[in-house]
Design a protein around this nucleic acid. Structure first.
Lengths: 371, 371
DNA sequence: TGCCCATATTCAAACGTTTGAACCGCTTGA
DNA sequence: TCAAGCGGTTCAAACGTTTGAATATGGGCA
């Protein structure tokens, strides 16, 4: 039919087919302000022909000319972590109304991939970048390039306001405290804690919150019941770590009635480890996780956890990015200060936590206090 | 510094800064064949300046000129389904070596979103489209537009070869048979089956495989123990469905020692339902799922399941797409016939399936044969 | 008749690249 | 001495849009 060198239908094709000039066709199809001056009959005719030919405007040419890509880059450190998904969905729903498209990239925890994607994002002229919680992000020297190219960034999952980057994260300290308080309120005093891996930013403040809450309650945490997850590697490393630590816990020979795990996958690992050792959850031991990801919902027993409002956080990050873009184009007030949002964690009680064993009506007789 | 109207550093800026023409700079930085003719000192100088300025080529301008977007669109029906993630990763790793980038979009099961994304994909001139298993895809009239614009499509998760679309899917029939065979080999005869929702393409052949295997083994499936999942809505609808059906199963009053669930989330729902009714898995009842998604791995007991090689399938789909693109550019042999690949399902035995209750050494005494 | 206004349409330049062809100054073999 | 060749660099046109300025057409009004 009317196609030219490239396989695509162009404005030129449509113009040729209906006898008007490229300009007119462009004005009509892009609904430019000028299109009010175009005769209604012409408009109709052009639209009709465009439809017949299956015309879709070329985003490259358009973006090149308009200098807007209508795209923002989303860099996830690992999509296979169920943690990322709700965030991505939130971002998407935040972008949708503004007709922006997320350019989603999964670094799969590979540093090299991360860098190369960051470069691609820059090349594709995304008007903003949202980074989902990445270890090493700040080291990368691409950050300088990003600044040179004036692309606004939002980071989700850690505080980089010190580097003048808008940051959004959960209030880890409050979350840690909330988790411990829940266990305390259920009457637990002998509580094992699994701290997060050292290279993860969340680990420290979460642990601080736990200690604070313990201090408030006059509880002294037994140091031998405090464990530390090894570094992360792969999506199930939290699970494996939790499982291994559960065994260590039992081997330690100290009594405990509850475990506060760093996150949900770790909690699920603990469930596995303790269950295999013959304990029952929550009758013999309560467990609480963190994040509230899908596996925590569908496991049995359902895992009590501290919920991160991931979707809301994603949404907000998208809105921030859009605002920053507007500012760059002079729409909104320019040069507002760098922002920080600490999302509020929320306790979700499911089946993995229950009153401490002694004197409970619900629990069956404890069969083994420990291995 | 040297920036011009757009906030970005352009070839022109670099040329200006180092005193060479735009052409030379382009030739050097894009490593065109001609760059061998450029003096080594010039090359070095240009690279140096480009680096200093933080130059990144504008993908729009480049793609416009080269008529290659180096991008393929990936349309997932719902990213929050853990099923999608390994596929996406597979696609990504298949695209990586060819330096193609996936433009990932999550339709979130919304028909309207799906259409608008499809349109965007077309506008962004992705050179190919991979669709992950979508109910209604074939209905959409955009399909005609896609054809008009000559963009190769691959669909993952159903057979659309009838519409001349390359298709990749699991051998559902073999998978269903495999699942049943596993239960039979463990000595189960009273087996409940949960069929998939009607609108899902996988449901029917999977059920056919089950019936075939049953017939082979001379087993007659009890019709009152065959259930049907209601239509899907949301990521946890499979779980909720399985849970509800587990209760119906018990209420039916018929003995059964195993459940063959449509997928893993359904299986997890069944675990929840039966566990709450006081049964133990697998001692009192074996359960097998389908897919092998993350929650099935980290649940306790781990869910025995039929694994789909999702990552491999994703990888293959990417390779197909790339091949089709090559063909369009005359590199590979043109016009090969439409392709179909049925991936081979694989049994993964975990903890949710065990020998049938009677006469087993492993199982504890069955406490309730049924509710 | 000439002038202005409104309406409907087109011109042409730009966006930032890539690339075939052209150019320039030198050497070199005939 | 000259044509040919070559290394190194630049010209200029194109890719498909958008858009401010320009054009053509036709009244209406003085």
């Amino acid at each position: 039919m009317g196609q030219r060198k490239s396989g695509h239908v162009t404005l030129h094709d449509v113009a040729h087919a209906c006898g008007y000039s490229v300009s007119t066709v462009s004005i009509v199809l892009s609904e430019a302000p000028l299109s009010q001056n175009v005769a209604a009959s012409t408009r109709a005719r052009i639209r009709e022909v465009a439809g017949q030919l299956g015309y879709h405007p070329d985003a490259f040419a358009r973006s090149l000319r308009r200098r807007r890509s209508q795209t923002i880059g989303v860099l996830a450190y690992d999509l296979s972590d169920p943690f990322c998904i709700p965030i991505v969905q939130g971002i998407q729903s935040g972008l949708q109304p503004a007709n922006y498209l997320p350019l989603l990239m999964d670094a799969q925890t590979h540093r090299a991939l991360f860098d190369s994607y960051l470069k691609m994002v820059l090349e594709r002229r995304t008007e903003g970048i949202i980074v989902i919680a990445s270890w090493v992000f700040e080291e990368t020297n691409l950050l300088a390039d990003i600044e040179k190219n004036h692309v606004p960034i939002v980071i989700l999952g850690r505080d980089l306001t010190g580097k003048k980057i808008d940051s959004l994260l959960i209030d880890n300290e409050a979350g840690g405290a909330l988790a411990l308080r829940h266990l305390l309120e259920l009457g637990h005093r002998r509580i094992a804690v699994i701290r997060g891996p050292e290279e993860l930013f969340d680990s420290e403040p979460r642990w601080a919150g736990i200690r604070r809450e313990a201090a408030n309650a006059g509880l002294k945490l037994e140091p031998r019941l405090v464990f530390q997850l090894p570094g992360l590697a792969g999506p199930t490393s939290g699970f494996e770590g939790g499982r291994a630590i559960a065994q260590q816990m039992l081997a330690a020979g100290l009594p405990f009635t509850a475990v506060l795990a760093f996150d949900d996958l770790t909690a699920l690992g603990v469930v596995r480890g303790l269950t295999h050792a013959g304990l029952r959850i929550p009758d013999d031991c309560s467990i609480i996780g963190f994040d509230d990801v899908l596996p925590a919902v569908v496991a049995t027993p359902g895992i009590s956890t501290i919920r991160q409002p991931l979707q809301e956080m994603g949404l907000l990050s998208a809105q921030w990015a859009l605002r920053a873009i507007d500012a760059r184009h002079g729409v909104a007030s320019r040069a507002s200060a760098v922002q920080l949002h600490r999302a509020c964690p929320q306790l979700v009680v499911r089946e993995s936590s229950a009153r401490a064993a002694q004197g409970t009506s619900r629990g069956r007789a404890k069969r083994k206090e420990r291995a």
